[in-house]
């Protein structure tokens, strides 16, 4: 079942190897607005572990993780 989210920015990092997707997400969230959702697309296998871990450490909210069409979408809400 898919859910509609209002996403502020989508980062297509499917063409990047580690640590590209995570670094792009971190940069975007750092510059982003509180309360907004930011999404990164990644094909990198390490992202499955690294992104949720960073989100937890950085005290943001992991809104959703959606696997589709050979990549994973990570939706993160900036909480601080």
């Amino acid at each position: 079942m898919s859910q509609d989210y209002i996403v502020e920015t989508v980062i297509d990092a499917r063409n990047s190897f580690c640590p590209g997707p995570l670094m792009e997400l971190i940069k975007t969230i750092k510059r982003g607005e509180l309360g907004k959702i930011y999404e990164v697309w990644s094909k990198d296998a390490g992202s499955i572990r690294d992104i949720p871990k960073w989100v937890e450490k950085a005290q943001h909210q992991m809104v959703d993780i959606i696997k589709e069409n050979g990549h994973t979408r990570f939706l993160v809400k900036k909480m601080r």
Partner: peptide
């Protein structure tokens, strides 16, 4: 090849980003 295709962040750019982060 991956570097030429821009799939790996260059070390200089990565360090620059890390200083900001």
């Amino acid at each position: 090849q991956a570097r030429k295709e821009g799939k790996i962040v260059h070390w200089k750019e990565l360090l620059e980003d890390l200083k900001e982060l």
